[in-house]
Nucleic acid binder design. Structure first.
Lengths: 187, 187
DNA sequence: CAATAGATAGACCAGTCGGTCTATCATTCA
DNA sequence: TGAATGATAGACCGACTGGTCTATCTATTG
């Protein structure tokens, strides 16, 4: 019988940290992370240099995944840039409806990382810029007169949707934001 | 010479906690709060029963102040409900521009209080409902066809503005949100 | 087989966490 | 004057914090 190797300590740690830092905030203890990942204490410091390194790497990975998810949602919506952009808000509706949705991971981290020098802040900032550029590209394809400004507004709607989704999900923020997005696209 | 009494320990503690829990998050240590307030450890437990009680009371007080600030901003804008509602976004622009703006206190607390049973969650929820009702009242005065739904959308814009203001303030989110708000009012 | 590298468990560290406690001081009021 | 009240300082508690360390085990590789 072949020994089923499975993911190594580094990956287990990243997976557990992605989950726990989202559900409990970046303030979770190292012990909880190690226990959830079933990984030796030392491995954390070998692979990431410390808790901050792990958190930063989790943010980096999550950002890449979320960017890919946005692109996938848009791709699945076809070729019409308008439909592709609106598909983003349909996806947000699904995200909010997930049973353990807890708001925007990046905003949570941004507010919780009190040290302004923490490398996580840069990762978060870059992520926003990437999403902005993604939206702006679609708006250009739509021949929108002010694609960058409209992308800023769509980003604001996305953030608002995730914030409201965390506190008042019963008001269907994704649908409300989608209506507002349509008007931005109509400019 | 009369002994200048000044605010008592309870009020000093509330003031310091309001400031510190905003700047550093609700994760600040009790020692830091006591030191900043120049208050004996025991006084915290006498007055608030513990850290959670203090945090909850800070949220309650802040909510009352912020509701009053919204009302003041609207009142200063005159009698036209449309101007009054748009004044909210002008005020948000000022709030974001404050040098130590750190995002929405309530969203930060919502995401940081991992325990869903923490009494702070209720306070936050009620605060959102109050602001919603405040907005809805103005929309009714405007004869808006769907005042509650429009209030939900304005609230979403407010949350989005504060979120973007925390990460990308240079994109002037308050002005961008104001433009979108105008369209909601035009329905 | 032997050597090396990576992962393991877990002891250990100083520091901090939220919270309880005793003792002292100042004010007010009877 | 004396009792009561409320605030003070700060010792103290067990639990936990992030981080370092040693020692052991295991898997690959030469």
């Amino acid at each position: 019988m072949t020994t089923r190797t499975g993911p190594g300590p580094r990956e287990r740690l990243l997976d557990a940290a992605k989950e726990l830092t989202y559900q409990q905030g970046v303030g979770v203890g190292v012990d909880a992370l190690l226990k959830a990942a079933n990984v030796a204490r030392r491995s954390l410091y070998e692979h990431f240099g410390g808790k901050d390194g792990l958190i930063t790497e989790v943010l980096r990975l999550s950002a890449a995944e979320d960017e890919a998810a946005y692109q996938r949602a848009m791709q699945a919506a076809g070729d019409d840039p308008r439909r592709r952009l609106l598909a983003v808000f349909d996806r947000l509706g699904d995200v909010i409806a997930e049973p353990d949705f807890r708001g925007c991971r990046y905003l949570g981290a941004e507010l919780a990382l009190a040290d302004p020098g923490h490398p996580g802040h840069d990762v978060i900032r870059r992520y926003r810029e990437h999403v902005h550029d993604l939206l702006e590209g679609e708006l250009r394809a739509l021949d929108h007169p002010r694609p960058s400004h409209a992308a800023d507004q769509l980003l604001l709607l996305i953030d608002g949707t995730l914030a409201v989704g965390a506190v008042r999900p019963e008001t269907h923020p994704a649908a409300a934001a989608r209506q507002l997005a349509e008007r931005i696209l109509d400019d």
